[in-house]
Amino acid sequence: MGLYLLPAALFLAVLALYPFIELIHMSVSQVSSDNIFGDWPFIGTAGVQAVAVTADFREAAVNSLIYVGLVVGVGLGGGLAAALVLWRGGPLSGFTLALMVFSWALPGLINGVDWRFLLDPRGMVDTILSVARVAPVYWLVEGRLPLVSVALVNAWTVVPFATLVFRAALLDMPGEVLAAADVDGARPRQTLRYIVLPLLRPTILVLTILSLLYAFKSFDFIYIMTFGGPGTASTTLPFLSYRLAFEIYKFSDGAAVAVITLGLTILMALVYLRSVHREERA
């Protein structure tokens, strides 16, 4: 079986694992545009420690938490609601599902461009609001709105995926249990609360982890819709890492932020798994 693994392992060793090790190497070195092609002096964790106390880092960390929270919360909540609406079939549900999954399948680039215009003061959202005589909202400009807007657009593309997974889990559910609840006269809300949700628990767990890991590294939507701005208002950790390296050429600072981001991502996933585990034993 080793032979089946070898090509992929060799390829990844050179083009993924080596870059990954170089990233860590860069984060413990002093690298700027002067010596990017020369020697990298070793500075240990000093760089990581220095970058972690900057105001930019703290802002980006807070932004990342808000971003991840919105993508996971809205993505899963919306997906569950959509799956409950669609899973029993009906004339339009197949079409609706296909329409939703199409927006998941489109690259973030195209969804990002589309929504950048839809959220423009001349775009769809403000035009609809103007019918209700609401003054134009500058979604991608004002205060925390840009961060929230981009996160919600990203969540909009996560919802269809979550819907598919929840739908599959609902279809797998033992029909007799639901039928029994019906016979016992349970209201739909009670069936949902006491039967459906507990059965969906493993699915919710897996989806939470997947969307958490995905949201933490999300980059495309921010690049296309706000480029981290205005100023740093929508700069999350992966985007801060990009800006440090490619706007001001502090390569090692960028690498340090990337490494901290990875550490935080893994930590969040482990803390979540642990809390779930503890709850299960309690």
């Binding site: 693994l5 392992a9 990844l12 050179v14 083009l15 993924a16 694992l17 080596y18 870059p19 990954f20 170089e22 990233l23 860069m26 990017i36 890991l213 933490f216 590294k217 980059f219 950790l237 992966p238 985007f239 890492s241 990009y242 390296a245 490619f246 390569f251 960028g254 690498a255 990337a258 981001t261 990875l262 991502t265 893994i266």
Partner: peptide, 24 residues
């Protein structure tokens, strides 16, 4: 080990790989 490494690579933000890949 294999699956763990794949997941680790999978969660690395794409821009973080730009400079090392540029060198390779």
């Amino acid at each position: 080990v294999g699956l763990g490494s794949l997941i680790l690579l999978q969660i690395t933000p794409q821009p973080a790989t730009l400079i090392p890949l540029y060198r390779v």
